[in-house]
């Protein structure tokens, strides 16, 4: 098969571009790839000879390594560009970057950027698939997918689950992609955070319920996603401080007890232990934080496989 699959977007900016069926297909494919990661030889030749450029304009070792691992397990070559690296001089515009990336003849671009919308900008200017690995507070679709995969694994299905998302909703790309993905897959989503960390129109825009206290969001929930708090935001008068946040919004055993039996705990990582959750919660058996990491590689393999033009059987060199 040549070119992007029928009905798939060229770029993946956020999960609202995918139908429920397409998301299910990604998760099913990811499940098959997760199995590859458990083999002795953790590699399949799906993207042999393909070049995946990883452009990380914002530092994120975890997401970069996850994408890099995913690409390598698919036998693709990878090229990591970071803004601090020699290839990216200060003052170079995103348009220049796009042109330079294209000159390397890559087959896909993975981009992490501090500015919301940067992947859209590149997607409009590059003929290759652009995968958003997080753009400012806007979207982080692979995180949304790996959270869906983790929940589906743990609970059998996402449909009908009551899921709470707690923390700095306004500034979180994880919250946005989770809301979009969870609602699309039929979950009932409640978000909670201090008023300074919420933003207008969440109900109508995402179809979620909004709470300024954490307890009503946790009441009877099947799962909770605790968002990472950017401690430096205290200075912007977004919240008075980590200590009070932990007391009022943090997840401890008392609050966890409000959730439904068999509930699970997610966090995009890295966790500020003692702030978003107590160390006991972090280490609890129903904390799936490390499963999320494993699933992250699998969904990224699935996406690369589904969105990057796979080689024609028997072809010695990629034709383009």
């Amino acid at each position: 098969m040549k070119g992007p699959m029928q009905g798939w977007p060229k770029d993946l900016i956020d999960l609202d571009q995918l139908t429920e069926q397409q998301i299910t297909q990604v998760l099913d494919t990811a499940l098959a790839f997760r199995e590859v990661s458990e083999r002795e030889i953790k590699k399949v030749p799906v993207l042999r000879g393909k070049l995946v450029v990883l452009f990380f304009h914002e530092n994120s070792t975890r997401t970069r390594l996850s994408f890099e691992t995913a690409a390598k397990r698919l036998s693709a070559d990878t090229l990591a560009l970071s803004s601090s690296g020699s290839s990216m001089s200060k003052g170079e515009t995103l348009l220049d970057t796009a042109r330079n990336i294209l000159a390397m003849r890559p087959d896909a671009l993975v981009i992490r950027h501090g500015a919301a919308g940067a992947p859209v900008f590149l997607g409009e200017r590059l003929p290759i698939p652009v995968l958003n690995a997080g753009d400012g507070p806007h979207a982080h679709p692979t995180q949304g997918l790996l959270d869906l995969m983790t929940l589906r694994d743990a609970k059998g299905s996402v449909r009908g689950l009551k899921v709470a998302i707690v923390g700095d909703i306004a500034h979180s790309r994880v919250a946005r992609s989770d809301m979009v993905g969870l609602v699309r897959m039929g979950a009932e989503v409640r978000v909670a955070g201090p008023p300074s960390m919420l933003c207008p129109g969440l109900e109508e825009e995402y179809g979620v319920t909004v709470h300024t206290r954490v307890e009503p969001a946790l009441e009877g929930a099947d799962a909770v996603v605790m968002l990472r708090i950017q401690l430096e935001r205290q200075r912007g008068s977004l919240f008075p401080g980590a200590r009070e946040y932990a007391r009022v919004y943090g997840l401890d055993e008392r609050r966890a007890a409000l959730m439904a039996p068999g509930s699970v705990i997610l966090h995009p990582g890295p966790v500020n232990q003692g702030v978003e959750m107590t160390p006991e919660i972090y280490g609890a058996p129903n904390s799936l934080i490390l499963d999320q990491v494993t699933n992250g590689v699998a969904v990224r393999m699935a996406l690369l496989c589904l969105m990057v033009d796979p080689p024609e059987p028997g072809a010695s060199a990629p034709s383009r």
Partner: peptide, 9 residues
């Protein structure tokens, strides 16, 4: 408003 919320701007 709801669009700035959606776009993370």
């Amino acid at each position: 408003g709801r669009i700035s919320t959606r776009l993370g701007l």
